[in-house]
Amino acid sequence: MRQNPKLWAHAKHIAFIMDGNRRYARKSSIDRQEGHLQGFNKLAETLQWCLDLGITEVTVYAFSIENFKRSKDEVDGLMHLARQKFEKLLEEKNEIMKHGVCIRVLGDLTLLPKDVQEVVADAMYISRNNTRAILNVCMAYTARHEITNAFKEVSWGVSKGLLKPSDISEEVLEKCFYTSHSPDPDLLIRTSGEVRLSDFLLWQHYSVLAFVEVLWPEYSIWHFFQGILYYQMNQKQVQLARDKRDALRLEAILESDKTEVVKMLSEENKCPEETAILPQRIAEYAAQRQKRITNFVETLDAKRTQQLLNMLPARTMSEIPTS
């Protein structure tokens, strides 16, 4: 099965909303925490199916900021499960490095308990350079929080003089998202029969949506194949819409560059209509804008790496060679 048929379009990035663990526990008369554990086991199984089909990136919605509203018992149980699983992952560090798995935890990590922050940062740090398979775990995440955070990041860039407000475009905002290093998911699967996105990857919803009736622990390989097929049937039109969106984005950027140059020329008391140098000035401005954006993104990445390093536990910090 590793040889995916070339005849069909092939999803590279899949996102899951793993819904229905608690309902499964109620249905099967088992403890709620046991339901969550079975949900985790299903995730491990699903990741293997993805790898078998050559899908190299998976994003899962593990814990929303809204989930902090749940009872203390349940939140503590979920955090304990997360810590336990990440610790186990760290024990298998060699396996992770051997298979080239990159783990990213996306969301406002500062909202997580300190001990969870430490293991999460540890896992992210050791696997940061791996590229063969990528697992994005959304914890303390909501899409609105992600968008609001991106607003704060760009305004930070503007206040530091790295960006001009007119430089802001969809691409710049996307660079500020928690998901900035991932392409938009090709397919988003939600289990449990609910037909809403529940604040998950709202900006990135130029993807095929598949709502499945079964509860997450009951999700089988047949449902998974069904989802892949669903993607293949819809892929062409979604790609066309993405291309149209990209064309519109480009148009808006060119328009914004022109407006800025015209503004600059009128400040220099030159009439833009009569100036033959307008196309050249626009090209120069576009190059400067691109330079500003690259510089901003580099600074932002450095800031984020520093934040991650600050979260690392002392034992890992001591292993990092000082440059």
């Binding site: 909501t142 899409a143 609105r144 968008i147 037909v195 809403r196 996105l197 529940s198 604040d199 709202l202 900006w203 919803h205 130029y206 993807s207 095929v208 949506l209 598949a210 709502f211 669903y230 819809n234 039109q237 979604v238 819409a241 969106r245």
Partner: peptide, 20 residues
């Protein structure tokens, strides 16, 4: 329509929207 995607419909506003 048979295409299963919202293709960029109001990303901020559809947080809790039911999609039928």
């Amino acid at each position: 329509g048979t295409i299963s995607s919202l293709l960029g419909y109001l990303p901020w506003q559809i947080r809790l929207t039911e999609i039928i």
